[in-house]
Design a protein around this nucleic acid. Structure first.
Length: 384
RNA sequence: GGGUAGGUUGAGCAGGUGGUGAGCUCCGCUGACUGUAGAUCAGCCGUCGUACGACUGUGGGGGUUCGAUUCCCUCCCUGCCCA
């Protein structure tokens, strides 16, 4: 039986960056690539047509959310997640591991798995490595993720070690539980901000028969330098491992460069769509907050360098109005643009890797977007 | 014309029956957001000041009083009822 996915790539000479192509049961994915996040079977406010027009090749769904509502068995009965949401491109499903972190006050972790008090109705829901696989197989995603235990950078090292080792044990159980030949399974490297733990975790995960290797547990409050150091440690440990590498939950425009240079092929992040709904546009002129009063009389396009539908047809003044009026179109147009911007940026990164302009592109983007997440880099306030 | 209820910081309110009214919700302004419990959250939102703070402010004017949003006089405005 053929493997569920195939990945070909070539090095670029820019750090550890590579250019590649991931073949999935639902189409090819050019890498490095960004995956918009569609947690509940929808990238909030966008239609599949919007996503296609923006250049989306692969997007995310979520095990925890979809199993709670509408239920993975129901989605399976309705023909699987692709048909259910009307998306014929590739889908990667997250395992619910992130909710172990984001819903920390609603869950209990033990060696066998996690018990959540549903954020919908409070009812208990059990997620184990095995059930995470069962759910994702029912959803029918092209790529499934192992259940992992994500932990914040403020936790003591002993706790990070414990969570990382548990993640390894859960990874093996996920691998043993899989039964679909047409679905890839990625393992997840943890290890917090500790280089040795990251390296050891990368070696452990790489030693298992996964179709790809993800790096999790970053962009959860650590500094930019800590994230880069963790990625360096992982890249070094993985060496020339030929499998696709996925940096989970990242990121900002600047973070893409940090990851690509360190050999990352895939990224996902809620940032472009979330900030879009909150009025922030990513443009060739940097970040714009359309709620600022100065845009009320700005007749220009959202981004003069963008060809998306929102930029072709609408002015900043119009969107500024829509946001103030809380008109639903605001969220869609801003999301259309930010997803387009992000996917265009990945395309520019791919061609910059080819023509030697990677460093200059990085500098331009860093000047415009370096402030995102910068608060994490400030030293803690002392003496109070 | 008579009666009655009102007039509080952009809007809508709360409060206050002689002893320090800057409290709420909108609106507005700014910022944040990283595998989505997020079309959310935070700060500011009378004037001056970075800030501690100072000053002003309960429709207008006047009066009584040590002190008035409160009591008295007068005028203006609004809702409702009656003529």
């Amino acid at each position: 039986m053929p493997p569920p996915i195939s990945f070909t790539f070539r090095p670029t000479g820019v750090g550890r960056a590579r250019i590649g192509r991931l073949q999935t049961p639902h189409g090819a994915v050019d890498t490095p690539q960004f995956m918009p996040v569609g947690t509940q079977g929808t990238v909030k406010s966008l239609t599949p047509g919007d996503l296609r027009a923006a250049g989306t090749q692969i997007l995310l769904g979520n095990t925890y959310h979809l199993s709670l509502r509408p239920g993975h068995e129901r989605i399976a009965r309705l023909g699987g997640l692709h048909r259910f949401m009307g998306w014929d491109g590739a889908i990667l499903t997250d395992s619910g591991g992130f909710q172990v972190f984001s819903l920390a006050e609603r869950r209990q972790v033990d060696e066998d798995g996690v018990t959540f008090a549903s954020h919908v109705d409070g009812s208990p829901h059990r997620l184990t490595p095995e059930s995470a696989i069962t759910i994702q197989e029912a959803l029918g995603s092209d790529i499934a993720m192992v259940l992992d235990q994500l932990i914040g950078p403020d936790r003591p090292r002993a706790e990070v070690e414990e969570a990382t080792e548990r993640t390894h044990r859960w990874a093996a159980r996920c691998l043993a539980a899989r039964s679909r030949a047409d679905q890839a399974l990625f393992g997840i490297v943890q290890g917090g901000v500790h280089r040795e733990l990251r390296a050891a975790s990368a070696r452990t995960i790489a030693g298992m028969a996964f179709d790809g290797i993800a790096v999790g547990g970053l962009s959860v409050g650590e500094s930019k330098a800590e994230m880069a150091a963790a990625l360096d440690a992982v890249a070094e440990a993985l060496g020339d491992d030929p499998r696709p590498r996925y940096l989970m939950g990242v990121g900002s425009p600047v973070d893409f460069f940090t990851g690509v240079q360190r050999g990352i092929d895939l990224f996902d992040c809620v940032l472009p769509t979330r900030v879009a709904r909150n009025g922030q546009l990513w443009t060739s002129e940097g970040r714009l907050n359309l709620r600022n009063a100065r845009f009320l009389d700005d007749p220009g396009p959202l981004d003069p360098a963008c060809a998306c539908e929102a930029c072709r047809r609408h002015s900043r003044a119009y969107l500024a109005h829509l946001f103030r009026a809380e008109e639903l179109l605001a969220y869609r147009l801003a999301s259309v643009h930010n997803v387009t911007y992000t996917l265009d940026l990945m395309r520019r990164i791919r061609s910059a890797l080819d023509d030697g302009s990677f460093a200059s592109l990085r500098d331009v983007v860093a000047a415009q977007y370096g402030s995102i997440g910068a608060a994490r880099d400030k030293p803690p306030i002392s003496g109070r």
